[in-house]
Design a protein around this nucleic acid. Structure first.
Lengths: 138, 138
DNA sequence: GGAAGTACATACAGAAATGTTAGTATGAAG
DNA sequence: CTTCATACTAACATTTCTGTATGTACTTCC
């Protein structure tokens, strides 16, 4: 009886201890997903297949290099599927894998919350009293 | 931006365009939440109030500096509440604010997914086999 | 013939994040 | 009296991240 695999909370609570451990591989996966562009790519692909240049245009601010690398990470983790057509001007399509969709849904949930509550959050910054602290700007 | 608050999808889709814009402030909030330690702090605080050193011991790998800074960001965004007791050896307690709990729940959802599916993800890395040159496709 | 467009890879560089070390206040413990 | 513990901050070093510039293959358009 390998009951270490109960899909409910047992595994979750056990495994969670893992994330808190520096060496746990889940930290790498988390890093890819929560990376600056990873989140945006997942959300962008939530609406369907996109070509490389479409993503680049949609995600304001990404450089080709970063987009390529992010897609590479996500593909390596099995969240994104890459499909290349051997045509003259390169044509490549990216889409979410079933697993990627599961992740993207959760990421989108977080992103949606932020956007819907941005007002409340920003308001906080005002009555936080002060603390210009040491972080210049971003 | 006061009556743009319809709770359903309208705001989400409109606002979402914001996240895709480089200058949107939501990117900063997202950065704090998805920062390397931000995720871990939120998850750690999900189980209740913690003192600074408790968090430090629980989150393997954080340095005091980073923990302090992360808590500062999260406090500034209104996700974490800080309570200091003016006692001899400093005593400070951190906990989630109502707003922080909402965010933490979503973050925890993502983290849980990762931990529960880590096996599948790691497996991916193996058969990511090198693409044999050209992809005929279709 | 020359320019343009696509989906990248590679090299180098500047920016940003993170870590390390040292230090502060104060009371308790040894 | 010395050491320890807490919750930090400031200064400095380092690692990591991200961007820019450049190049490639090949075809279509002018």
């Amino acid at each position: 009886m390998s009951d270490l695999n109960t899909p409910s909370g047992i595994v979750a609570s056990l495994q969670r201890g893992q994330l808190f451990s520096a060496a746990c591989p889940s930290r790498d996966v988390l890093k890819h997903i929560t990376s600056r562009w990873g989140v945006l790519v997942l959300v962008a692909l939530s609406t369907g297949t996109h070509r490389f240049s479409d993503l680049r245009r949609k995600i304001d601010g990404v450089s080709e290099r970063m987009l390529a690398q992010t897609l590479d990470w996500l593909e390596g983790d099995g969240f994104v599927a890459r499909r290349a057509y051997p045509v003259v001007p390169p044509h490549v399509e990216y889409s979410l894998t079933p697993m990627g969709r599961e992740v993207a849904d959760r990421v989108a949930g977080l992103v949606d919350w932020i956007e819907e509550n941005l007002g409340r959050v920003l308001h906080q910054h005002h009555d936080t009293g002060v603390a210009p602290a040491d972080q210049p700007v971003e």
